[in-house]
Amino acid sequence: MVELMLRLAPEEGYTAAQLDGVTFMRSNRSLPVTPALYEPSIVIVIQGRKSGLHDGNLYVYDAQHYLVLALPLPFSIETEASAEEPMLGVALRVEPLLVAELVMDRDEPQPTQPATLYSSPIDAHLSDATLRLLEALADPDEVRLLGPSILREIVFRVLQGEQGNGLRATLAQNSHFGRIARVLQRIHRDYQESLDVPSLAEIASMSVPAFHVHFKAMTSRSPLQYLKAIRLHQARLLMIRNDMSALSAAQRVGYESPSQFSREFKRLFGRTPGDETRHFKTLLRLAPAVAGVARSAS
């Protein structure tokens, strides 16, 4: 798998595969702890080690463990790698429709205590399916004919494991988990709009107090704290990728007060918007691998 990954991801950073929803990851050096935002996904590391910190809990995903995020969650990540043994991995976007089809086919009961993320040991079945996926991704004909079915198998294997509980729960639209998932989808789609707690609670079909309780239980943040984190992550990407000024980025993501934006940005990232942009551009010139960290926040 390492040899395949070195061919599939010849450059540092994130590389889109020929199969929709699949992304290769590579870093030739260790990267410090950085705030990031992952979309719902299955992350399988082939070589090297990544660790994430969320709500005071540490999640390690390496060649023996994979990570699943049932919800889009902001957390901090750290990468351990070297030029001799680069970090190599593959991220598979979780498609709710595919999960729904697999769950309905098995007619499984709805989970009662879903988990939003944690790492689990990779078993022989999942490892074998991952190898076959990488082999298919290396061949244009195989990826077209076999890729989707192997990807489906990987999601099935994850559903069968201890992390499948969280994925199944996203489909329980009448459960608290499913209702909060609908709200998160709205926030990620329309984060730049004027969103307030009462309107978000209405989407969840909950009272405001109940919405606060269940939202924080799922994300470890209040609704407004979560919305703020999403806006700040998106603004940072606009400044780093598009050379957008702090004022323009703040306005684009929904901030009306530049001073409030700068204050909250520094509180989250530890630097002012200008300092953060200069810091990342310096790192990008020194090591393109840092681009992967910036992209992981999207």
Rank of each mutant, 00 (worst) to 15 (best):
S120Q: 09
T170H: 04
T15H: 14
T112H: 08
Y118A: 15
R152N: 11
S220L: 12
L126R: 07
D243K: 13
R152W: 10
H125C: 03
L31R: 08
L151W: 04
E108D: 14
G161K: 11
N57S: 13
Y191M: 07
A246F: 01
V99P: 02
A297Y: 05
H212A: 01
D20N: 14
L184M: 08
G89Q: 03
Q110C: 09
F261Y: 15
I187P: 00
L284I: 07
R182W: 05
A181L: 10
S82T: 08
R49D: 15
A294F: 04
L58E: 06
R29H: 05
S298C: 01
L227S: 11
G147D: 13
R144E: 01
A83H: 08
A291C: 12
Y191W: 09
A172W: 04
G147C: 14
M1W: 12
E101G: 00
H125R: 14
L117H: 11
E39P: 02
V103E: 03
R157Y: 00
L53R: 13
G13I: 12
I187D: 02
R144P: 00
D128H: 01
V99K: 12
A181W: 08
I230N: 05
H176K: 06
A204Y: 06
A210Q: 15
F156D: 08
L131Y: 02
S41P: 02
A210P: 13
L283S: 00
R236C: 00
L137Q: 03
E142V: 02
P74L: 04
D62W: 02
